[in-house]
Simulated assay, not measured.
Amino acid sequence: MLSHVFVGVSDFGRAWAFYQPLMQSLGHPLRFHEPEVPWAGWHSASGERPLFVICKPFDGAAHEVGNGQMTAFMAPTRAAVDMAHQWAVDQGCASEGAPGLRAHYHPHYYGTYFRDPDGNKLAVVCHEPR
């Protein structure tokens, strides 16, 4: 269904330092990193799409956080969800919901929510049974 998700950032170096270890820990391979543009993208562990891309806004205007927008990343295990949340909080990011089971979505939905350094809302989710 999705080709790519594009998230604007205000400071590419800071965003790269945040996203590269996060994506690596979740098993999402780096597809490209071009700091001179600046942009970087990772693809799904299962294939070349969808892509997740970070970049300064192309129009040159300041980055703005969207209200009601969120990007959710797949995690292979519940432990990976826990580690991603702790790592983000350790980086000074705001928690939007500690890791836990959220059975109102479905019986095995285990997720967490936090903001990246630019305030973009992210989720990390495992859909597998314990």
Rank of each mutant, 00 (worst) to 15 (best):
V7N: 02
V81D: 02
F12L: 05
G27E: 07
A40C: 08
S10Q: 14
A84T: 03
G111C: 12
T71D: 00
D59V: 04
W87C: 02
G13K: 12
A75C: 06
C55K: 12
C93F: 01
H85M: 03
G27M: 07
N120W: 03
V89M: 03
G68M: 04
G111N: 05
G111T: 11
P38C: 06
S3Y: 09
S3N: 15
E128I: 08
W42E: 00
S95N: 05
S3G: 11
A123E: 15
P76S: 15
H63W: 08
P57N: 08
Y19S: 07
G27A: 09
G97P: 09
A79V: 09
P76W: 05
M74P: 01
E48A: 10
V53W: 01
C126S: 13
G68I: 03
V5K: 00
H43L: 03
L30A: 02
L22I: 02
F32L: 13
F12V: 04
E48Y: 00
V65D: 01
V53S: 07
A61W: 04
Q86H: 10
T112E: 00
E64D: 08
D11V: 06
W87M: 14
P50S: 03
M83I: 08
A84M: 02
D118Q: 09
L101I: 12
A98N: 08
G47S: 02
Q91I: 01
W42I: 01
F73I: 01
A45K: 09
M70F: 04
E48D: 14
A84R: 03
E96Y: 10
R49V: 04
H63S: 10
S3L: 08
G97L: 12
F18A: 04
F58A: 14
G13W: 03
A98P: 00
D118L: 10
A94E: 15
P35H: 11
H33V: 06
N120T: 04
P117K: 07
G13A: 15
G66D: 09
G68W: 06
Q69S: 14
F52D: 00
N67D: 13
S44Y: 08
